[in-house]
Each structure stands twice: as structure tokens, then as C-alpha cells.
Design a protein around this nucleic acid. Sequence first.
DNA 1: GTCTATAAATTGATAGAC
DNA 2: GTCTATCAATTTATAGAC
Lengths: 179, 179
Amino acid sequence: MSTRDRLVESTRELLRERGYTGTSPKAIQQRADAGQGSMYHHFAGKQDLALAAIDRNAEELTAKAERELDSPGTPAERIATWLRREREVLKGCPMGVLVQDPEIIASPTLRSPIAGHFDWIRGRLTEILAEGGLDPRLADTFLAVLQGGYVLARAAGDPKPFADAVEGAIALLERATAE
Amino acid sequence: MSTRDRLVESTRELLRERGYTGTSPKAIQQRADAGQGSMYHHFAGKQDLALAAIDRNAEELTAKAERELDSPGTPAERIATWLRREREVLKGCPMGVLVQDPEIIASPTLRSPIAGHFDWIRGRLTEILAEGGLDPRLADTFLAVLQGGYVLARAAGDPKPFADAVEGAIALLERATAE
DNA sequence: GTCTATAAATTGATAGAC
DNA sequence: GTCTATCAATTTATAGAC
């Protein structure tokens, strides 16, 4: 892996572990085993690195969601498959965590690619819900169950609230579908 | 308001605006119009101030939720009333925002009072769901809808995803209840 | 492309006068 | 109780040699 790539990967890890505000360029350099000068050669600064990391996150997460949401089955089944994907819950959502960071919220440059990613999933979910004749607002409901599940699990230090939130939501969806 | 109280209130505001990692003692002092020495006279340091702020948050939020969840009506109606309370969505949940902060997650001292607050609401919701013969896992589902709604709204810079997530969840609950 | 040196600002506190 | 002075460490870079 190139020095540049190592810097991006280190930034991705650190943003998830420590947030944007809590991540220093120094920490990124150390984890990537790159020098100060090397980092500032490849990137303009901390924000520029974060942008590259967010873009990579979006690519990866989009690919995963696409696979699950396009799998065979009824709309409700496909949504359940996506909701039930294994996640490293206690680490937080790579994108969701960033949205709570004050410096990211304050910076349109950093916030908009994250917003764009959520917009994409919302749109895809809305299409699938329409197929099933389901309430389009449920796109945000299910997205929120995931994002909120992360929050509850992290507060508790235990993935259980996440699992319960997801299974409760799926049970409601199945009820609404069964008729 | 006493200097001590002003310090706690300033800390509450700043924790919500800038998170724990992003809040400096200096900023707290300036907003409270208190000197350095004054702050360190009343509190042992930043963590001690945050604890006082979290405790106040818990008191206030518990009182509000208690009122709504104990109001007259069916279980589903009481939960809907609580979900629909007006919230300053774009500012984030005073507790939920903190849970995404790396330093808070890493500190049992700071995390446990927050966990305790969520435990309390979860318990109260579980009782109400039991009254209605509803799936107990829905306690986490509805809590997650709120917490996740905040995340989506902040990402979008718009309270709409929060409102849609909540209304979608209530629609599902009403369906599950109607029989 | 990578390195070391330097730097201005901020962070979270402590010390001690008043 | 409140103030100012001081401090060691860290933060986010920039400069310039190699």
C-alpha cells in the first residue's frame, strides 16, 4: 500500500475511533508510519485527509447496501436483510459518528459528502418501499433505527440495544406487510 | 444565578454545541463570565464539570419524559406523545451527542450516568409496552428512532428526516395496535 | 517524496497573591 | 472565592534541506 493510501486508511480508523475533533495529524502520521513532511506533501491538511477518508467510507458503505437491497425477495425481506447485516456496533457507524462531531457539522465541505451518502440510501429505500406500497417515511424510520441503535449500544457499552431495536423494527414491518 | 450555576449551565450548552473533546475549560469560563481560579475553585476540572452538566441533563430529560409517558391514553398514544415532543433537533440530543464523543466513551465515569439515563427510559417504556401487550424490544426501537432521527437531521442540516422517522414509526405502531 | 526544525496558538492545569 | 502568572504538552501547520 502506498504512503498515500496508508494515510487515508489511518485517517479512516482514527475518525471512527476518535472523531474529527479528537484526531490529530500527528496521530494519523504515526499510525500510517509516515512523516510530517510526507503527510503535507500528499494532503493539504487535516480537512483534506478527512475528505478522502469520508469518500472511501461512502464507496464501501454504498457497495454493501447496494448488494443487500438489490438481493432477491420481497421489499420487506430485502430491507430486513440490510438491517440485519453484521456490524461492529460498538465502534459506531463510520459516517454516523462523524455527524455528531462539532467541527464536521460546522463545515459544509465535510458535512455535504456525508449528507450525500445518507441521501443515496434514503432514495434507494424509498424506491423499495414504493414497490411494496409502503409508507415512504419508513425510509427515515429504518435509517434512524440503525443510527440510533449505534447510539444506544455505545451508551450501554453493549450491542444488545442495537439488536433489539432492529428486531423490533423488523417485527413491526412484517406486521404492516402481512395482509 | 451563582457563579457555580453559571459554570454548569455554560458547560451544558458547550457540551451540546461542541462535544466534550471540543470543549475547553477556557471556553466554559468565558461563557460563564468566570475566571480561571473561580472555575478551579468550584470544580476539580473539566471532567468534574461535565459530570455536573450530565446530571442536570438527566434530571431535566427524565422529568419531561415522565410527564409525557404518564399522561392519560392508551400505551400507543402515550408513546406517540413522547415521540412527538418538540425538540431542538439540529442541536442534537443533549445526551446522545455525548455518547459519540471518544473521550466520553472511553471514560466509565462519564459514560455511566448517560447509560443510566437511557436505562431509565428503556425501563419505563418497557412497562408501558407490557401494558399494551406489545413486543418489549420496541422500547429500543423507539429510542433508536429518536436518537437516529437526530443523526439524520444533523447530517442533512434539516429537521425533516427526524420528523419523518418519528411519524413512520408511529404509523407502524398504530398498525400493530389496531386489532 | 520525505525529512527535520521551527512556531504561534491552544489545552488543561497549578501556584500563589489578594 | 476570585484573580493573574506560569507551565508543559499538544495542535496544526510552514520552511527549507536532502
